[in-house]
């Protein structure tokens, strides 16, 4: 069971702020969720390998060819107002806490 502070901290880690009854609802949700996944403890998973991929294929390898994306301006168009003079994306003040 997680308490309010713990859930608030996890939310903050996910860059989410919870206000008013959002926090209470989130605490209820998380604790129900953990209750649901606590069921795994009934199983002996010691020697069971983790499932990572449905098919036993190997990672395909791409040829090392430089082929520029033809529509770079379309990518930048999403932020045309806030790019700086050199074309870099703006971010607000970074404060190392």
């Amino acid at each position: 069971m997680l308490n309010d502070e713990e859930v608030r901290a996890i939310a903050a880690e996910a860059r989410l702020s919870l206000h008013g009854d959002e926090l209470a609802k989130a605490v209820r949700y998380i604790n129900n969720f953990l209750g649901m996944v606590d069921r795994f403890k009934e199983l002996d998973l010691k020697d069971v390998p983790p499932f990572c991929f449905a098919e036993s294929t190997e990672c395909p390898l791409r040829e090392d060819v430089a082929a520029p994306f033809p529509r770079v301006p379309d990518i930048l168009a999403a932020r045309s107002q806030s790019l700086d003079y050199a074309g870099a994306f703006r971010v607000p003040r970074i404060v190392e806490e």
Partner: peptide, 27 residues
């Protein structure tokens, strides 16, 4: 600040179910 900006975008932009699942996954 950067953290405030990220929190602002994500808290306003995501609905309750999405936020709940993000918190669960982070947890």
């Amino acid at each position: 600040t950067l953290r405030e900006a990220f929190e602002d975008v994500r808290s306003k932009g995501f609905g309750v179910e999405v936020k709940s699942r993000i918190i669960a996954g982070t947890c």
